[in-house]
Design a protein around this nucleic acid. Structure first.
Lengths: 202, 202, 202, 202
DNA sequence: CTGTAAGCGAGACGGTACGTCGAGTCTTCCG
DNA sequence: CGGAAGACTCGACGTACCGTCTCGCTTACAG
């Protein structure tokens, strides 16, 4: 489990965990991720780079994966982006995808994303956290937009919205993971929505 | 590169590599994969289990990942399944997906599949092999069916077939990787193909 | 340096150090020494056992070794034993050795003694304290008895008394350290003095 | 247990342990012992210095102590010294002690000796090996000389030879361990043997 | 039918990372 | 200021795995 100091507000006894130390670790991790592959970033290296004892890292995160997840969510995908529903659900979704893609074009984004997917395959705990948090947060956003579309009558109400969402994210993931370098650009967002459009709107 | 003994017909001098040894290694790998996570299956363990020297393994495969790929493709997804075009492309695709799903419900399939995806993130060589072989073989099959649909006038020719294929596989991957346990069953195959309805002429 | 609370009479400002705390630490140390080897007794464990902060220990002793030395000298070899000179120096020495041996048969004595010898090898500060205090106090007692023997004409005056003392303690140490379990009993005291007797008395 | 490659002549399977590697480890240990205290010589440092994997050290010795014992006995006290009995037991013993002292004045000897004594206090296995080997080998030599004296009628047969030996080694140990820097020189050898005068017949 | 190149089991090898532990110091809050 | 709690740095521990190397031995084709 991630036991980040900032989350556990109740512990009061003893010396509190230092936020500066947290920052040093996260920062060192980012620096190392820039210059090395994820698998080559070891806890030892992070500790050395951050001038921190290894124990200090293990006190906060129980694995490299947990640390990575926090680094990714807080630094690379640092804010949830969103769109205000305009009344045109499909257009909103296309906008949202475009915003996602901006983040995913961050130089560390795809390296980090792949690392998360890989870790998720190895570590059941991490998988749970990754999918129920990171992934679901984003799924939910899209689903809400679709739902709004249903409510204004733009989107058919007899469809599985979940499937539509899976399709969208599946398409993105496939591109991300295959490493083929196919770009996540505005055109792709348009295509994705385009292909779903006839399915959704009548 | 993998240089399996059976493929290299030109080497003649010296003692030939034993097929029985090959088999022992692959078999040991499968046995270990059943009882342990992929990351816990080490070459040392495989060698011990197969009563084989480590060198003997590295003579045949250049990494754990290569060995895995072969084990997966030859044992778990052991034959390419296919369908003969019936004239109804979407129905054919649905059939094909159902056949894929049969293989993917093999007890080692999803564990092995995840392992391959994870390895692909770490190892560029493996990624290349994995996507241009395993993945593309299957993509190609679906694409061909779609193309056949175009040729008989069932499927529209003004849309990107590649995108359609990505959508299908993306949906499947997403389900496989998320470990949510959402089943890859016939209903899902039907749903997926449903997405392609808009691709039909008229 | 050991700065036991009882010695520092001058510090007056702030909350005074608690004697009960001192006691708790020493007691916990003894308890742990009973059940574990010296090397397995860590300051962390002592602090936990005594329900005391580590700093509280380090405020009183500057190292594990210092704490050990005090525990040993104050609890195991808790009072200096002595004999009143009877006029027969050799008999007095034999008596003194017997009294030493009573202490050394304390269940923690040889474990503690070995620990001190070991620490003395590692830590120059401790070595100084150990030899100039614990060891020399006892050497001095024997030497005084010998000197008394010289003065009453029982012991030859042309001998190195230091050598005689070294021999006595050397014999004892050798037995203690070798862990052979050779007993430190009255018979051994008699033997030791017996072997020195012809050397000393004529 | 020490499982030095040179001793186990029977293992034939697999790649044999390299003598050069052994040598590199021992040499590195000696080098480090020169510049650092024993406690500061870690297996990590030895491995780094010897350009050897840690496992390679642990394959041969089960602890730092075992390695030390071998280094000490094979390099510092590298050959057992001895004397041929001349008929005068005490003179022979004095000669033998002088020879011991030559070895003990080796720059690493007392550092190494103390380290062995300290380790012996911590580790029962090591203690057993140390005393029944290193220590006893030397005790035995002295005892034999005394026994020879008994046989030629020079030494009294009604006294405990073991005690005499303990006395001699006790005196030496005490001087070695106390770190007082009292020299182990020829004069000391003469003094020690002087103690044994009462053992002479008549 | 014999030499020799390669395969083979076994296990040593240099490296690197792991996660834990201990020492001694520092920092909080509470009395 | 004392004290309990516990964070902090540093660095050692012993294990595991990777991919390579090196033994003695076996196998089967080539001359």
């Amino acid at each position: 489990m991630v036991e980040s100091s900032n989350t556990s507000a109740t512990r009061t006894r003893g010396r509190p965990r230092s936020d500066a130390t947290n920052e040093a670790i996260v920062h060192a991790t980012l620096e190392l991720l820039e210059s090395e592959n994820y698998q080559d970033v070891s806890i030892d290296k992070i500790a050395a780079q951050a001038k921190v004892g290894k124990q200090t890292i293990y006190r906060r995160w129980n694995s490299k994966a947990s640390l990575l997840l926090e680094v990714m969510t807080e630094r690379i995908f640092n804010r949830m982006v969103g769109v205000v529903p305009s009344g045109d659900a499909l257009s909103d979704i296309e906008d949202l995808l475009k915003r996602y893609f901006v983040q995913l074009r961050h130089p560390l984004a795809d390296k980090g994303f792949r690392a998360m997917v890989a870790e998720a395959q190895f570590d059941a705990d991490f998988r749970e956290k990754f999918y129920s948090g990171f992934v679901n947060d984003r799924r939910y956003q899209v689903r809400e937009l679709l739902q709004a579309g249903v409510e204004v009558g733009q989107v058919r109400s007899d469809l599985s919205l979940d499937l539509a969402v899976d399709i969208l994210f599946g398409g993105i993931w496939f591109r991300l993971l295959s490493g083929a370098g196919a770009p996540l650009d505005d055109a792709f967002a348009k295509e994705l929505v385009g292909i779903l459009k006839p399915y959704l709107v009548k």
